[in-house]
């Protein structure tokens, strides 16, 4: 026998509450967006630097990817907890953790993209008198774009999800609603649904946005032979 302790399905979402709290929702959504954007942006800069390093020095490739794979394995809650004694319950703690999680995917895709450029293209470029730098910026990088963009999409979507967990350390963006939902009785399902639905929407919007952006910059990749 099931005992109904919680809200009945017909008041799954308390729209009245939602109406009254639109500003809080907007504020949390915005926090979610900037936590995500900062994490992915910083993550990408770090990953790009690491990738260039790996490219010029293939020996570091393995240790770097292994380290980021291990970092990726450690549960995020544990990472945040380990950082709290150092950086406190702060945005910085959240960002350090979030950036760490982006690195594996971003480094892997960036390196794969840069290394995946066909030899004959590089050979022809060098043969026509491209210097190494020009070859990197004008040939390797543009050709790696589709793979790099794919990495950024994956990293961004996962980051949107991980941001919700930072609610536990007082950040969280939309995760704040989810956590509230777990901790209160009144409007429980409203909190949870607002948090979950909006963060899924955010993930989808980011994903499609980056995909569009990527297509715009790689017109040559639109049709693949």
């Amino acid at each position: 026998m099931r005992t109904r302790v919680f809200a009945a399905p017909d008041d799954l979402v308390n729209w009245e509450w939602v109406g009254r709290n639109l500003d809080t929702i907007a504020e949390r959504t915005w926090q979610h967006v900037y936590l995500t954007v900062i994490a992915v942006a910083v993550g990408f800069v770090v990953a790009f630097a690491l990738s260039l390093w790996i490219l010029s020095n293939p020996r570091v490739g393995k240790p770097v990817t292994q380290l980021s794979a291990i970092a990726y394995t450690i549960p995020s809650l544990a990472i945040f907890a380990l950082l709290v004694p150092v950086t406190g319950l702060s945005t910085l703690t959240a960002e350090i953790g979030l950036v760490m999680y982006t690195l594996l995917v971003l480094v892997r895709n960036t390196v794969a993209g840069l290394e995946g450029v066909p030899d004959e293209v590089l050979d022809a470029g060098a043969g026509m008198g491209y210097e190494d730098r020009r070859l990197l910026w004008r040939v390797r990088l543009p050709l790696a774009m589709p793979v790099i963009i794919a990495g950024i999409r994956i990293a961004t979507v996962s980051t949107v999800g991980l941001v919700t967990i930072t609610a536990v350390i007082g950040q969280g963006g939309l995760g704040w609603f989810i956590l509230r939902g777990l901790n209160t009785v009144a409007n429980r399902s409203t909190f949870v649904l607002v948090g979950v639905v909006l963060s899924v929407l955010l993930a989808v919007v980011f994903d499609l946005g980056i995909q569009r952006f990527g297509r715009y910059f790689t017109p040559w990749a639109r049709k693949v032979a």
């Binding site: 919700t164 609610a167 989810i178 939902g181 777990l182 949870v192 963060s199 899924v200 993930a203 994903d207």
Partner: peptide
């Protein structure tokens, strides 16, 4: 796109 934390909360409700 669905965060693990979100799934937990959804299953909970």
């Amino acid at each position: 796109a669905i965060p693990a934390f979100g799934i937990l909360a959804l299953v909970f409700i």
